[in-house]
Computed example of a mutant assay.
Amino acid sequence: MTNKSQHPLEKILRSRIAIIDGAMGTTIRTYGMKEADIRGERFNDATKGLLNNGDLFTLTQPQMIGDIHRRFLEAGADIIETNTFGATSIAQSEFFVDDPREHGGRKDPAFYQKVIDDSFLNNLAWEINEQSARQCREWADRVANETGRQRFVAGAIGPLTVSLSNSPDAEDPGFRVVTFDQVKTAYIQQVRALIAGGADLLLVETIFDSLNAKAALVAIREVFDQDGKELPIMISAAVGRGGETMISAQTVEAFWNAVQHAKPLSVGLNCSLGPNLMYPFLEELAEKADVAISCYPNAGLPNPLSLTGFDLGPPDMARYLGDFARGGLINIAGGCCGNTPEHIAAIAKALEGRPPRKLDLVCAVESYASESLA
């Protein structure tokens, strides 16, 4: 296979540590948006509160979202994420569908089948994903043209608000609120819309339930096979203090074993723990995985008295991520909750000139081309 089959991001990952952006939700809060701002005219009649539905700002406040992308890019991000963490019909149903538990019922597969079949939710999810990818694409290309440095759009695929691994009913451990096929169907729509909008990569992130992630990876594979187009996949898990995924409770090594079949471009850890607690788990993953390693932690622990809602400032994050780089652990670095463009700028400056973790991506990248031609 020639170099023509290699994804452009591979060259960066071999030569330096790539920078991924920070927290969209945290940065949105600094703009002081109110309920009326997220509703606009379009969602003015919604019966439930929408302010926590940050993905919806893609449609109602596109200028603000574009400004956030611009700021992260100018801070030094090579990769910016779409504002689509909860942009599935399942996640959006939390804001637009009455909760049956408030009327003596419960959420179950029958409830979520109605969600999956709901045309309003399906159309809304598609629009958020496609428009967000287009917004990212526009800003990534604009800044790339201005700076002469290519930037990449990662389609953000979040973990959902439901679990396939655990039952919410202590008296019925076999009960699940949703089925694997329902989760897969919701993810299929999200993946197609992100690709339609111009995403360069697909990022399955903040994985607390490995079975949910499996559904996302199966959805991605089905879309690739059916549509004849493939993108590199990035995978990132959230782990607890013991280094286990939070609901499925897999160790870091077990998690990698569960997802390596997807031949990701990168695997990593994000969210959950602050960087001061993440080092040993990142070290284990870097030892076990044979692909690029990403890390974008929270800015420490939540702190409602802090301006960003988290303890660590830009110098703190720069110091911790610098330690990861000195340890030879990372190829992609950034920040999750609590990390603003200022945090990313500090991280990018601290990692400038630092060598990336050594890796051989040829097999992983060539596999995309080989499978596309099969």
Rank of each mutant, 00 (worst) to 15 (best):
D21S: 05
K34W: 10
G40S: 09
G40N: 10
A46D: 02
L51H: 05
D55Q: 00
I68S: 02
R71G: 02
E74T: 03
A77F: 00
D78R: 02
T82M: 01
I90S: 10
F96L: 07
F96C: 08
V97Y: 00
P100G: 08
R101V: 05
H103S: 14
G104P: 11
D117P: 10
S132K: 04
E146G: 08
E146D: 15
R149N: 10
R151Y: 12
A156E: 12
P159L: 06
N166R: 09
N166K: 09
P173L: 12
A193F: 00
E205M: 08
S210E: 13
S210V: 14
S210P: 07
A215E: 13
V218L: 08
Q226T: 04
E230Y: 06
G240Y: 02
E244F: 09
A249P: 03
Q250K: 15
A262F: 03
L265N: 09
L265H: 11
S266H: 02
C271T: 08
V291K: 14
C295H: 10
D311Q: 10
P315G: 03
A318Q: 10
D323Y: 01
A325S: 11
I330C: 14
T340R: 00
I344H: 05
A346G: 08
A346C: 14
R354W: 00
P356F: 09
L373D: 07
